[in-house]
Design a protein around this nucleic acid. Structure first.
Length: 458
RNA sequence: CACCCUAUCGUCUAGUGGUUUAGGACUCCGCCCUUUCACGGCGGCAACACGGGUUCAAAUCCCGUUGGGGUGACCA
């Protein structure tokens, strides 16, 4: 059995769509699973849209997802060039072969591929005119996901435009042939055109590769397949929003593929080991941004605290973290790591750890004022905290102080909690209170209690 | 209009003729924990599109209908 060779053949337009990313991913997984080669081939025949920037964005996106290629731009390889724009001579050579085989003819300046079979004329409602059709023998597509699919082409088709440029169907087949591609893994939107490709392979005296047409990713709301304009459709967006790349990749793996053992959050090695076309779904899947976000949160939680703090530092405003000890940042992040879904939620979550000028939530303030004497309580607990001698300002010492105050007032320690939280953070929710006070430190806590006491009186 | 693909909870899916009161995950809801909460624990709602067959037995096989998706370019 010869080595598996798969390819991802994007047309770099500057935007890396999740659908393309998943096609790349499944190719990559199959190559890694089988120990084969993953080829990156750039379909840059559309000079208008394909810029160096666009290529860079595509490669950045692939690398961000951890999809490394064995042959292609910046990697080299034996069967290049890997840019279609550099392969003109190769296409010409194969066009000549096709001409020599007698399967082509010219019409209105374009070169057509001629189907074999009985010809007839018919009105085509889609084209709105009479066209010549052919009763060609059906091509049998050997698809690893869908089994044997039979489809017959019924019209001759253009392989070289009157401008002299070869069309997609031709270059795709020639490239796959000359690059020794053994398995073509692509979106189901290509399935109907595969019969054209099989015709061309056979006309060139070659056996078509095996195919795997993977289901499409559909819009999460509304109809049709996902497009670049839909929310969450672009890999660039996840990079910009500091998603965990492994989380995005993990989610994409599960969109249309299942390990069939109820496992979802998996290290990539486990996915590679289990990846197989038997696990690929035959039906299309809707994109679910919430599940992706959940998966991102899971990956965030499992990060070592140092790594989490490092990532957090990238999304927090510079003035927040610049003149702060790294240990302080790590401590703060330890408080919120398990609670955050996206890193970009962080700034609004932890502002009060870094600045005294935080917003007070008026609703929480009102609710607090309705309870009994928050100011008296604040004064009591402020006095109690001031007496703490433990230089570590530990959670235990803080709790003890609360208990003492509560005993003296004939209440419970929790009587002070909502007020304390509001006084130091302006908010009604957040991390566990006592650890949060410890991280904030004695000076900050006492100062903010003073502000609260004074602020409410005035 | 034609051709091709497809059809299990709202969503992603497990299920390849009997082990299934159809399992897991996201979402949602409830309870517990916490007199905070965006964490955690426990629990709940929720599906085999429809109609025919085949079979002792069908979510699973076949046919049809309906729904969804794709393709039908001198785009890729």
């Amino acid at each position: 059995m010869s080595e598996v060779r798969v390819r991802f053949a994007p047309s770099p337009t500057g935007q890396f769509h999740v659908g393309s990313a998943r096609t790349a991913l499944f190719n990559w997984l199959y190559a890694r699973h089988t120990g084969g080669k993953f080829v990156l081939r750039v379909e840059d025949t559309d000079q208008q849209r394909n810029t160096p920037d666009a290529l860079q964005a595509l490669m950045d996106g692939m690398r961000w997802l951890g999809l490394d290629w064995d042959e292609g731009p910046e990697a080299g390889g034996e069967v290049g060039p890997y840019f279609q724009s550099d392969r003109g001579a190769i296409y010409q050579e194969y066009i000549e072969k096709l001409k020599a085989s007698g399967r082509t003819y010219e019409k209105e300046g374009a070169l057509y591929f001629r189907l074999e079979g009985e010809r007839y004329t018919e009105f085509d409602s889609h084209l709105g005119q009479e066209v010549e059709k052919v009763k060609a023998a059906p091509q049998i597509i050997d698809d690893m996901i869908r089994g044997k699919v039979e489809r017959a082409e019924e019209r001759d088709f253009v392989i070289v435009r009157s401008s002299g440029d070869p069309v997609f169907h031709l270059v795709n087949v020639v490239d796959d042939l000359t690059m020794g591609i053994t398995h073509v893994i692509r979106g189901e939107d290509h399935l109907s055109n595969t019969s054209k490709h099989c015709e061309l392979f056979h006309a060139l005296g070659a056996e078509p590769p095996r195919f795997a047409h993977i289901p499409l990713i559909l819009k999460s709301t509304g109809k049709g397949k996902m497009s670049k304009r839909d929310e969450g459709a672009l890999i660039e967006q996840y990079i910009a929003e500091h998603f965990v790349p492994d989380a995005v990749r993990n989610y994409l793996c599960l969109l249309g593929w299942s390990p069939k053992n109820d496992r979802e959050i998996m290290p990539i090695n486990e996915i590679i080991r289990n990846f197989d076309f038997g696990g690929v779904s035959q039906s299309n899947a809707k994109f679910d941004h919430e599940k992706l976000t959940h998966m991102n949160a899971e990956y965030l939680k499992s990060l070592p605290i140092e790594a989490f703090a490092e990532k957090a530092a990238q999304v927090l405003p510079a003035q927040m973290v610049n003149d702060v000890y790294p240990e302080y940042l790590t401590d703060v992040m330890g408080l919120v790591q398990a609670k955050v879904n996206r890193l970009t939620d962080l700034p609004s979550l932890v502002g009060y750890f870094f600045s005294d000028s935080f917003e007070n939530d008026p609703k929480v303030g009102e609710k607090l004022a309705k309870k009994s004497d928050p100011i008296v309580k604040a004064k009591d607990i402020r006095a109690g905290f001031a007496l703490i001698e433990d230089p570590n300002w530990s959670v235990e010492a803080l709790e003890q102080a609360c208990v003492s105050c509560a005993d003296a007032a004939g209440g419970k320690k929790f009587d002070y909690f909502p007020m304390l939280r509001y006084a130091v953070s302006g908010s009604g929710g957040g991390p566990d209170l006592l650890p949060m006070l410890k991280v904030l430190g004695k000076n900050r806590v006492l100062d903010r209690l003073d502000t609260y006491i004074g602020g409410v009186n005035s």
